[in-house]
């Protein structure tokens, strides 16, 4: 897939915590419609802050973010485009059942009452969790909760789905199954996805393009096209080779080079 167009357009973005500590600095990037883009960076570099800014939860100090030509707005009930968000933790309401959790965001997105149930059924079916429709989230496994979280994000039929290291808290086997399901899901839906991760292999497996960020405050260090055809295998030797190249490429920038005096943590 070639990546043309500016469906998500980020320009000269500066974001800081409390207006003091910079988290993202002069960052510009474009994501095309229907693209699966990964944002890769070391832990704590400001990847999540970038997603928060794209979602409108955090206001940037300067710079602009547009989705489908509309500026991203903060707060509730504004006119900006709908965004689905899958967090690192599921962030489901534990006092609401799976179906109720999805229904709440559907109603907030203005979905008509008659459409709520069919839509819940459709996305639960898509994520293979229909049988948990009336279950409390606390009764589900980590992987099942994250599936519900993805179903919630997709059910509002958002312009963009933002995913913030959604599989990082899962065990490796579950995470692999989930990655595969997400890749299949994306191939069927062609949803625009921005996926934040610190795992190079995960980014390579899932994304068509990877935006590599610097250490915090995050700036765009490089952009890499992943030309390995789909469907991909997680153990594909071409991904292993690309992974090694990226590790070598980012070593200095992420503070693990010969001059940095630090050993890689992982």
């Amino acid at each position: 897939m070639t990546h043309s167009g500016e469906y998500i357009r980020v320009r000269d973005l500066d974001v800081s915590y409390d207006g003091i500590t910079p988290a993202v600095s002069a960052l510009s990037m474009d994501v095309a419609e229907g693209e699966f883009a990964a944002v890769l960076g070391p832990s704590g570099c400001g990847k999540s802050t970038l997603l928060h800014a794209i979602s409108g939860v955090v206001q940037p100090q300067s710079g602009t973010i547009e989705i489908a030509g509309l500026p991203v707005g903060a707060g509730r009930g504004d006119d900006s485009v709908p965004i689905g968000y899958v967090f690192q933790e599921h962030r489901l309401l534990p006092w609401r059942t799976v179906a109720q959790n999805i229904a709440i965001v559907l109603r907030a997105a203005g979905v008509a009452d008659d459409d709520v149930d069919p839509r819940i059924d459709h996305y639960l079916e898509m994520l293979h969790i229909s049988k948990f429709r009336n279950t409390w989230p606390l009764r589900l496994s980590g992987g099942q909760r994250q599936r519900v979280s993805i179903a919630r994000a997709l059910a509002i039929q958002p312009a963009v789905v933002l995913m913030d290291e959604p599989f990082s808290t899962l065990d490796e086997v579950t995470a692999r199954v989930m990655r595969q399901q997400l890749a299949d899901l994306w191939q069927r839906s062609n949803q625009t996805i921005v996926f934040v991760t610190h795992s190079i292999r995960e980014a390579l497996f899932l994304a068509g393009r990877i935006f590599i960020l610097t250490q915090g405050p995050a700036r765009l260090f490089d952009t890499i096209e992943v030309s390995v055809p789909r469907p991909r295998r997680y153990e594909d030797p071409r991904l292993t080779e690309l992974e090694a190249q990226i590790v070598e490429h980012v070593m200095d920038e992420w503070g693990y080079g010969a001059n940095s005096g630090e050993e890689p943590r992982e």
Binding site: G56, G75, R76, G77, Y85, R91, A108
Partner: peptide, 17 residues
Amino acid sequence: PGLDEMSAVYRLRRLRY
């Protein structure tokens, strides 16, 4: 605070929140 963030992302109305 994670649930507050979720509410803001999905733009839950004030009363619903």
